[in-house]
Design a protein around this nucleic acid. Sequence first.
DNA 1: GTCTATAGAAAGATAGAC
DNA 2: GTCTATCTTTCTATAGAC
Lengths: 195, 195
Amino acid sequence: MARRSGSHSNITGPRIREAAAVLFARDGYAAVSMRQIASAVDVQVGTLYLYTPDKQTLLFDLMRSHMEELLDAWFSLPKMKLPLDQLENFCRFHIAHHLERMDGTFISYMELRNLEPQNHAVVADLRGRYEDELEAILKSGVTSGQFTVPDTRLATMALIAMLTGINTWFRSDGRLSCERVTETYWSMVRQLVGA
Amino acid sequence: MARRSGSHSNITGPRIREAAAVLFARDGYAAVSMRQIASAVDVQVGTLYLYTPDKQTLLFDLMRSHMEELLDAWFSLPKMKLPLDQLENFCRFHIAHHLERMDGTFISYMELRNLEPQNHAVVADLRGRYEDELEAILKSGVTSGQFTVPDTRLATMALIAMLTGINTWFRSDGRLSCERVTETYWSMVRQLVGA
DNA sequence: GTCTATAGAAAGATAGAC
DNA sequence: GTCTATCTTTCTATAGAC
C-alpha cells in the first residue's frame, strides 16, 4: 500500500487538510494524532511538517478558511430589498452552506477551545462578523415593523444555534430531505420573528 | 502544598468528579490528562484509580449522571394541564437547569464522540427520552390546535438547540440577567410554535 | 518531495511500600 | 487511603539519507 517517494507537492497539501478535517470532525482535535493524519494521506509523519509548521496551525488554517469561505459565500449573494426576503435568503443560505460542509462546521463549533488565544481571536472575530450580518437583517425588520423581536442580539444567537443545530442530527439518508428540512425551518424562523 | 497521606475516601471521590468536570468542560476530555485531574484534587495519579477504573468511565459517569439528574428534575416538576403552560414550564426549566450546570451541559454536548459505543448508547437513550418529553408537549398542542408547528420532531430539535445554545454565550456578569434572557427566549419560543 | 529513524516529552495505568 | 516509582505506549517534532 505504502507509496515510496515521488513528487506530489501540488496535491499533498490539500489532501492533508482534507484528511485532518475528516479526522478532527470525527474524533476531535486533541484525540487525533499526526500519525493518524499521515496514515490517512498515506505518507509518513515527517512529511506533514513540510506543509504545516505544527498541528495547531493545521487546525487554525481549517477553521479560519471555513469562516472566510462562509463570509465570502454570503457576501457574494445578491442583496434583497425587504427584510423578510433577506431573512429567508439568510436562512436558506445558512442551512445549505453548512449541510454541504458538515466536517468544517462541526470543527468550527467544537474546537474553538483548542485554538491558542491569538488564533482564537481571529476566528471569533470572523464569527462575529457573520452574526452581525443576521442581526442587521433583524434590526431592519424591526425598524420597518415587519418583525416582532424582543431583542435582536438574542434572536440572532437563537436563530444561529437553531439553524446550525440541524448539522448535529441531519443524515442525508434519513426521513427528511435537505429541501424539506429547509422549508420546515424557514416556516419556524418566520414565526419566531413574528412575520 | 502536597498533602501526605490521610483518609478522605468519603470526599475524594466527589472531588475527583468535580475537578474532572471542570477540566473536561474547559479543555475537552481528550486534552485533559489524569495527572492534571490528580493535581487539581491535590492527590497523586495512582489515587484516581481507586475511584474510577479508567478515564473513559470517569467521563461516562459524569455524562450519565448529568442526563439522569436532568430527567429526574424534570419529572419531579408538577404537570400542567394546557400545552402552552407545559411548554412554558419546559422552557423555563430547561434554561434554568442548564445555566446552573454549565460544565455538565458543555460536556454532554461536546464529548459524545469520546464515549465508547456501549456508553454512547446509554447516554443517547437518556437524551432521547428528554427530547421525547418536549415532543409530547408539542404534539398535544398541535392536536388541541393551540400550536402551529409543521413537524413536531424538527421543532423539538430546533427548540432544544436554541435553548441550550444560551450556554455558549451567557455570562452571569454580562448585559442580561438569567431572568431577562428567560423571558426573552420564552417569548420567542411562543412565537415559534405559533401560540 | 518523501522517507527512515529517533529524540524527548508525556500519556494511561499498575505494583508495592507505608 | 494514599504515595512513590515505574512500565509501556504513544505523542509531537526534527535530522539526515535518498
